[in-house]
Design a protein around this nucleic acid. Structure first.
Lengths: 337, 337
DNA sequence: AGAATTTACTGAACCGGATAAGTTGTGGAG
DNA sequence: CTCCACAACTTATCCGGTTCAGTAAATTCT
């Protein structure tokens, strides 16, 4: 099926290509009557501007990129990314930007994808997740002058905009809550240790534990998978001084931890309190429902998308804090026996 | 940063633009020596062909589209789509096709997205999920002559290729297994009732129950969410003749069902056996781990991607059956007390 | 009324590749 | 030694938009 072009519209309206372009883009240079006639014809024949032609003549590609840097087996169950994607979409669709996705295995591969996308002019900007210390992606983005927004900080990203949430505050609130319930031995199962926000959380966890006079602040490193989360939980629970409360860096590990506790005959929350970071429907699904650090991930993503679009428009964007998690108590936390 | 074009390469190599194009695309018309020289220069300056220019001059957009037609709150937790995306990606990336994503609310909106994508020449083909009876999207795809592969059949899609799995066989196997364990009252919590594969499952469920002489084959319609799955379970379990086994159309509802059973003081699998359709890590995470109908969703997605790429290349593709689920028994099924 | 400005257009160049058609230079056949 | 075929290019055109430089007519200004 031949797709209509502005030349077709021009012919039917009896004007030149240029006039059609001005009319459809709301540019001055055509009379209101002509504009309406042209718009009507475009509507009638179902015209959509060829994005390639548009991108080629200097305009933007009207697309942004997102890489997913987790193994497939984690991606499929980790609710975070899908939440993020939903949030992006809401913003992007409203301004008719497309979202281009690519699953990558390593940061190096991710850099290659950025280079290619940018070289191909396929995208106008990218959303970068999982900021690390001395992240290798940052200098590349700066060198390419590729508009970007980084999620997962705060960290050192130079001029590149960031959207981050106050993880330190959230974990402090959580520990205080558990201590108020009477817990003295609180452990944590952390996310990937080289991610910057994991480090932020670990540091804040240690600080608040020290401040409250708890003698230890054990963080078991993990990788966000259920299996690892379960293993870490088992290691924590077989010790002599087993903790009475565990904070998990994501919901998947928390659910796995709950299963391990039940399997070991420990009552939740009687023998063990559990707190999950990131509240997904998963947390309310299990029994008992999990106390969680909720934040609106979709809104977080929408916020990042807005910042990115602003950066693409050349506006100077700054670091913004958005969507800090707050504690949602449910059935998995109680005073220790 | 100025991005290099073939004109830059041509200048440095002392040849014409045309020669560069032939050299980089493996076309005849340049000597092997020149070709290597040109390729080396392209490598050195980090050349990537402008996808817009390429798409504009008749070639394909080298991108395919996927719409996600579920509310954000389901998408975030439903492992199916992410698994599918991972599978697509593996195939698409290998042939350097990009994946463009859009979240939509209704089939009508989905059609609009298809029209726009195709009109804009943004994509070369689409992957269509959630086939319905008399699906309104099919005639539009045919009219647009937009290459497509449909997942979620089998159903009537005319010339459009399909990739489907033998759901009827899987559910038959499951019911036979439960009956062999001694169950006589088996219920099911189904997915969205207007999806074709839900109907296939429902029909097959009824048939096998009749064939095995079970007096009823109750299917509670649901919508794949944990809340609805939990509610449906509760309705099933408060009846006088409550079932001793329940089959769920996805893992999220199965986990919710497990929580409801535990909350009502029923032992799983002692008082109630549970089978989940689609085995995600979620099923192994909970306690007891859920018996599930496993299939390799990523491979299913990869298969669909291969078929779509074949369709885009103009090859005649037929309906293929792929990735039929098989029963993976775990701790949630046992003979009834 | 005539000049200056504005309005409403047209025509053409341009973006960066792909590709058909034309132009050399070389070697082999006759 | 000439003619022809073919390899190895170059040149020019096209894809479908955007945008700039013109241009004729209408309007405003003095």
């Amino acid at each position: 099926m031949k797709r209509p072009t502005i030349a077709d519209i021009a012919r039917r309206a009896g004007v030149s290509k240029g006039a059609v372009s001005y009319a459809l883009n709301g540019q001055p240079g055509v009379s209101e009557a002509t504009r309406q006639r042209i718009v009507a014809i475009a509507q009638e024949i179902g015209f959509n501007p060829n994005s390639a032609a548009r991108a080629l003549s200097g305009a933007s590609a009207r697309a942004v990129g997102l890489t997913l840097a987790r193994p497939a087996r984690i991606l499929s169950i980790e609710p975070f990314f899908m939440g993020l994607i939903s949030g992006f979409e809401a913003e992007l669709a409203a301004r008719s930007y497309a979202l281009t996705l690519q699953v990558v295995a390593t940061p190096e591969q991710e850099i290659e994808v950025y280079r290619r996308w940018w070289g191909e002019r396929r995208i106008d900007g990218v959303i970068v997740t999982d900021l690390r210390e001395n992240d290798v992606r940052i200098p590349v983005l700066q060198q390419l002058q590729l508009p970007a927004v980084v999620i997962g900080g705060p960290g050192d990203t130079g001029k590149i905009a960031q959207v981050w949430s106050d993880d330190a505050g959230a974990i402090t609130e959580t520990v205080r809550y558990l201590v108020a319930l009477g817990h003295r031995r609180i452990a944590r199962v952390g996310g990937l240790p080289d991610l910057l926000h994991t480090q932020t959380r670990t540091r804040a966890f240690e600080e608040v534990c020290t401040a409250l006079g708890l003698n230890e602040a054990v963080t078991m490193p993990s990788d966000y998978t259920g299996e690892e989360g379960g293993r870490a939980t088992r290691r924590l629970l077989i010790g002599a001084d087993r903790p009475t409360a565990v904070i998990y860096d994501n919901d998947v590990m928390a659910v796995a931890g709950l299963a391990v506790a039940q399997e070991m005959g420990l009552a939740v929350p009687g023998d063990l309190s559990i707190v999950a970071w990131d509240d997904s429907p998963l947390c309310s699904l299990v029994h008992p429902p999990l106390t969680a650090l909720s934040r609106d991930i979709a809104e977080y993503g929408a916020h990042a998308a807005r910042e990115l679009l602003a950066a693409i428009d050349g506006k100077q964007v700054s670091n913004v804090e958005a969507g800090t998690a707050h504690l949602t108590p449910r059935g998995s936390t109680a005073p220790p026996r």
